[in-house]
């Protein structure tokens, strides 16, 4: 079987190692993003990740340093601005468009240093999971494992705080701190996902498995596990697909599988009405302000 020969290639095993961890972390974090209606944050952090990575490259630092610093700092900033910061879509959209513009500036700055640097931008934007070295893959997997561990540790209070913030606060759950810690996790996860599928596509990795899990089950802990499981399975399928058909770039293959699974759940599973959070929002006929 040619599929099993894939494991003979070190680049494939590295991609599999890093991809599994990153997908699991993205699935867990994505579930809460969808539950807390903060998918937009993932979109915004994708923009920041690009600029952070290229700024680090342009200034001569490791790409991952820029990724993590930029995403975590901006996640904290978004958290500090709080709900007020989320409501003004035009302002936030403008800020992030400008940040992307800055990213384009750093990209040019970096690519003028040498001809070999020309593809750096494409790699950051669309990922290069098959290009990870053994060390990079190991670090990515370790960081992803740490993210997963923290999410698992915080899962109970975070679920409580996400579903009913007021009651959770009344019961003594530190809602605000939890929200901030969660945003830091999202930032770290975005930096991780950028290495796998790229900063433009990480939104899909965060949103698709989580959306499918939300559709499939109403029970939070099941959905959380399902989201991570789906993400890992989609990652494996995508990597396998890309190996079998080398013309398909891995990030496209992963996104294609994830989108197909999500669309399948949308078409086959009828929306539930019993889930407290979603039913309340769906009944609400007042048009919500659009967000970027």
């Amino acid at each position: 079987m040619s599929v099993f020969r894939a494991f003979d290639h070190p680049y494939f095993t590295h991609a599999l190692l890093a991809g599994t961890g990153i997908a699991a972390a993205a699935g867990l974090v994505g579930y809460f993003l969808v539950l807390r209606a903060q998918v937009f944050t993932g979109d915004a952090l994708g923009h920041v990740a690009f600029t952070g990575a290229l700024a680090a490259l342009a200034l001569g630092y490791d790409l991952r340093l820029g990724l993590f610093v930029a995403t975590v700092v901006f996640a904290v900033l978004i958290g500090a601005l709080g709900r007020r910061g989320r409501s003004d879509d035009v302002a936030i959209g403008s800020v992030f468009a400008w940040i992307l513009g800055l990213g384009a500036f750093f990209l040019t700055l970096y690519s003028t240093r040498g001809a070999a640097h020309g593809t750096a931008g494409v790699n950051v934007l669309f990922g290069s999971i098959f290009g990870l070295s053994a060390g990079q893959a190991r670090t990515a997997a370790l960081v992803a494992a740490a993210i997963c561990a923290v999410v698992a540790l915080l899962a109970r209070p975070l679920l409580f705080a996400s579903v009913d913030e007021a009651v959770a606060a009344a019961r003594g759950v530190p809602v605000r701190t939890l929200g901030l810690v969660f945003l830091v996790l999202v930032g770290a996860c975005a930096a991780e996902a950028t290495q796998a599928v790229g900063s433009l596509l990480l939104l899909g990795l965060l949103a698709a498995p989580a959306g499918a899990a939300h559709r499939l089950t109403a029970r939070p802990h099941h959905a959380l596990a399902l989201s991570a499981g789906l993400a890992v399975a989609e990652m494996w399928a995508g990597l396998g697909l890309s190996y079998a058909a080398p013309r398909l770039p891995p990030s496209f293959a992963i996104l294609a599988v994830a989108t197909a699974v999500y669309l399948a759940t949308l078409l086959t599973v009828r929306p539930r009405r019993d889930h407290t959070v979603t039913s309340e929002e769906e009944r609400d006929d007042v048009p919500t302000p659009s967000r970027l």
């Binding site: 969808v34 433009l200 949103a207 559709r215 496209f252 989108t259 919500t288």
Partner: peptide
């Protein structure tokens, strides 16, 4: 309501479609 940001699952769907669209663009480019 597709053009609205919506919340939760609607945003998840829109985000997925956006990312998939960009991924398709990347595929065409490659």
């Amino acid at each position: 309501r597709a053009g609205q940001g919506g919340s939760g699952q609607e945003a998840a769907l829109t985000g997925t479609v956006q990312a998939f669209g960009l991924a398709c663009g990347f595929l065409f480019v490659t």
